[in-house]
Amino acid sequence: MPVAIITGASKGLGRALAEALAGRGWDLVLDARGGRVLAEAARAVAGHGARVEALPGDVTDAGHRAAL
């Protein structure tokens, strides 16, 4: 099964992309700076049947990028 890492996944284009890929059977690693909103988005996206891992943080941080 394909896996995608989506940054900015808590709202807007990132969330729309996550929902679309989940609906097509992709597993997802979701990233956004706001942990609470990201968790809500991850729950919604997981409802499409995808395996979802949400990692809040800032992609400008090298440690966070390594965790992704």
Rank of each mutant, 00 (worst) to 15 (best):
M1S: 13
M1P: 06
V3S: 13
I5T: 15
T7I: 06
T7R: 00
G8C: 14
A9Y: 09
S10R: 11
K11Y: 10
K11Q: 15
K11C: 13
G12Y: 00
G12S: 03
L13M: 13
G14Q: 04
G14H: 06
R15T: 03
A16T: 02
L17N: 12
L17P: 09
E19L: 15
A22F: 01
G23W: 01
R24F: 08
R24T: 10
V29H: 08
V29E: 05
L30W: 00
L30H: 02
L30R: 04
L30G: 00
L30I: 00
L30T: 01
A32R: 10
R33I: 09
L38Q: 00
L38V: 00
E40Y: 09
E40I: 08
A41F: 02
A42G: 07
A44K: 09
V45N: 08
A46L: 10
A46F: 13
A46G: 10
A46S: 14
H48I: 08
G49F: 04
G49N: 06
G49C: 07
G49R: 00
A50K: 05
R51S: 11
R51L: 11
V52L: 06
V52C: 05
V52E: 03
V52I: 02
E53S: 14
E53W: 07
A54D: 11
A54Q: 08
L55V: 03
L55W: 02
P56C: 02
P56G: 05
G57C: 04
G57L: 04
G57P: 01
G57T: 03
D58T: 09
V59I: 15
V59T: 12
T60C: 12
T60D: 12
T60P: 08
A62R: 07
G63P: 12
H64A: 02
H64Q: 04
H64L: 01
R65P: 04
R65D: 01
A66R: 14
A66H: 09
